[in-house]
């Protein structure tokens, strides 16, 4: 593997980092539910790709395991679980309105991404861990953009994808800052995420059935001053 010098690998990793960030923006701004899900899948693939690239040199069995586990669970199993539990009509919906309009949303998301760079830098300088240069700021941005998605989206599925994207962001940073995480922890987290998708899928279905909407952002009968 002569052409894959560490330098090339680092550049490729920076490219996957960029793609990861773009898909996080996609989850913030896509109106189509299905499109949103596709961006999530793309984000998970870039996460796996980054784990693979970082695991090449020096070779790391742990990161290869992370790559395989991610590829199997996130782009394949999660969409399948969601499709089974949520049902087609929720799945193919289109979100009419977000809390903020999309250009404003994207601007705020961009500011968050820049902030996360400045939040991550002191940590990288403190440890002198140059490999974290790409992954930590982008991972942090993934977490922040996921949180932001939760705040601006009203439909159930994009909110769930925001949660899953947060977890992806944490792991995007994790593959660099904690590459020797025991495989059992990786497996358990994957299992955990699958249960999450299942439980939230069932809950969304129940909400659609009993309340008649999946615009969970509009549910506001429980308040301090509500006279129940």
């Amino acid at each position: 593997m002569s052409f894959l010098s560490p330098n090339v690998i680092n550049n490729l990793n920076a490219l996957t980092g960029g793609l990861f960030l773009i898909s996080a923006f996609g989850i913030v701004a896509t109106r189509q539910m299905l499109g949103c899900l596709r961006f999530y899948v793309a984000q998970s693939v870039t996460l796996a790709a980054s784990a693979f690239l970082l695991g090449l040199h020096p070779f790391s069995r742990h990161l290869m395991e992370v790559c395989i586990i991610t590829i199997i669970s996130k782009p394949i199993l999660i969409p399948w679980v969601l499709k089974k539990t949520m049902g087609k009509q929720i799945y193919t919906r289109r979100e009419i309105s977000q809390v903020l309009n999309i250009p404003t949303s994207l601007l705020i998301a961009m500011v968050l991404a820049i902030i996360s760079y400045f939040l991550a830098m002191p940590l990288i300088h403190a440890t002198g861990d140059v490999r974290a240069m790409v992954n930590l700021p982008i991972g942090l941005a993934g977490v922040l953009l996921g949180t932001y998605t939760l705040a601006v989206r009203r439909e159930a599925l994009p909110q769930l994808l925001g949660l899953l994207a947060m977890e992806n962001g944490a792991f995007f940073a994790g593959i660099v800052i904690a590459p020797d995480l025991p495989a059992i922890a990786e497996l358990a987290v994957t299992f955990d995420v699958l249960i999450l998708a299942l439980v939230v899928g069932v809950l969304t279905r129940a909400i659609a059935k009993h309340i008649g909407t999946t615009e969970v952002g509009e549910l506001a009968s429980l308040k301090e001053d509500a006279s129940l």
């Binding site: 159930a156 809950l203 129940a206 909400i207 009993h210 309340i211 549910l219 009968s221 429980l222 129940l228």
Partner: peptide, 11 residues
Amino acid sequence: NTKEALEAAWK
């Protein structure tokens, strides 16, 4: 499965 319970669960 009431409206309130489901909303609480989602929150």
